[in-house]
């Protein structure tokens, strides 16, 4: 079947458009608040990353299921010198 119910949807009503525009603006505000909150976590996140890289060298990295592989010191990545290195919300 090449035609779908969605193809016959009536155009967005004025009421819906008003709702849509208002909610897009609200979502943008929420997004900015999330980014601010997550930027505030950077000092903690630095420590979480350090702990994680320690764990994968000792207890091991979870390859699949319960299979773990200890990561050698040579394999451990280094923090790159770029502005988005600690960014987590994109």
């Amino acid at each position: 079947m090449s035609k779908h119910v969605q193809d016959e949807k009536p155009p967005m009503t004025a009421e819906a458009k008003e709702w849509f525009d208002k909610e897009i603006a609200s979502q943008e505000d929420r997004y900015k608040a999330i980014v601010d909150e997550q930027d505030g976590l950077i000092p903690e996140r630095e420590k979480w990353y350090t702990d994680f890289l320690e764990i994968v060298q000792t207890r091991g990295f979870s390859v699949t299921g319960d299979t773990r592989r200890p990561i050698s010191k040579e394999e451990v990545p280094e923090k790159p010198d770029r502005p988005d290195a600690m960014r987590v919300v994109w």
Partner: peptide, 12 residues
Amino acid sequence: HNYFHFNPWTNP
């Protein structure tokens, strides 16, 4: 699909 890795600093 689960792509697993251990580099915390990669971007999309």
